[in-house]
Write a protein that binds this DNA or RNA. Structure first.
Lengths: 166, 166
DNA sequence: TATTGTTATACTCTATAACTATA
DNA sequence: TATAGTTATAGAGTATAACAATA
């Protein structure tokens, strides 16, 4: 997750001249990566009091709206490999944020549910993240924010062709 | 850099129902992260024949337009920590793609330059990456591509407020 | 036979502390 | 004293192989 750096940021005593970055800035991959890292660092700072990574937060947010979802479903949705999901879920369980109940129709699977504490934390952190995004996107209009989201989704969601959205 | 997965992608024998992801899809951070990972995986595939990571490529591309740049400048530009930059540069050097020359005005610094082979590789891979992006962004118009880049830059470039463009 | 969840494990990426040599 | 480059190292994150239990 690239934990945020110590980021003391001295008052720029730096003298080195900046480089010409026009080539890279013309690449969407580069821009998406840099923006993602910048927002991720901000996320890390704001979430420090709650001890949640982006993956942790995503799982809690998904469970809030998809109670009983299985590890398999969450892994597929978030593009996390099952072996890497085990310790994540175990940690949330240890913290009393989620509960594992036997799946009603599949003995192999386990349904995941938020506990009361999990619901509270999911709700509170969602608010924090939305505020953080409002700040990070402070120089974007509401319309621009919707636009950038819609365009980014074209790169990772299947069949999100044009048209549609108003 | 998250190397690309073995991605056999069986013809979806999967039966698990998809989850409601609307909360996450309303977050710019989530969308930027997912898009970045998707483009990164594609980058990894196309660059496999050249053995370059995104960071490697970025360094070569920057040196092509900024001959003599120092490690310090490249680190600052690409947000890479100096200790992590050492092995990257050493590998490019070992491959005969770059050359380290004493800095003309600073005995501590080392000016980095592309070799002939480095220039050839930088030019060829830049073409491959641009083609790859054209494909990845196939469902975006030229105007949309410029828009998404401009908007993403607001998150990681300082003082890129509105106005300006065009 | 295929799938869910898991253990073990290895590799990559990212971070900090501390050193050297020049400035 | 501060900066450029480096070494050593620790900790996240991400990948594969292989297993038990259930379908």
């Amino acid at each position: 997750m690239a934990r945020a750096r110590k980021t003391s940021t001295p008052p720029a005593p730096s003298t080195a001249e900046p480089l010409d970055t026009s080539v890279l800035e013309g690449l969407i991959g580069y821009n998406a990566r840099r923006a993602s890292i910048a927002i991720g660092a901000m996320f890390f700072e704001r979430m420090a009091p709650y001890g949640l990574t982006q993956a942790d937060f995503s799982v809690l947010a998904l469970l809030a709206h998809n109670p009983g979802a299985t590890s398999r479903q969450l892994c597929a949705t978030l593009d996390i490999l099952p072996p890497n999901f085990v310790s994540l879920i175990a940690a949330l369980d240890r913290r009393g944020l989620i509960e594992r109940r036997p799946h009603p129709r599949d003995g192999r699977a386990v349904g995941l549910h938020l506990t009361q504490a999990g619901h509270v934390l999911a709700q509170e952190t969602e608010k924090v993240v939305v505020e953080m995004e409002n700040e990070a996107a402070g120089r974007l209009s509401a319309r621009e924010r919707v636009t950038v989201q819609r365009l980014l989704q074209r790169f990772y969601l299947p069949g999100n062709a044009g048209g549609g959205g108003r």
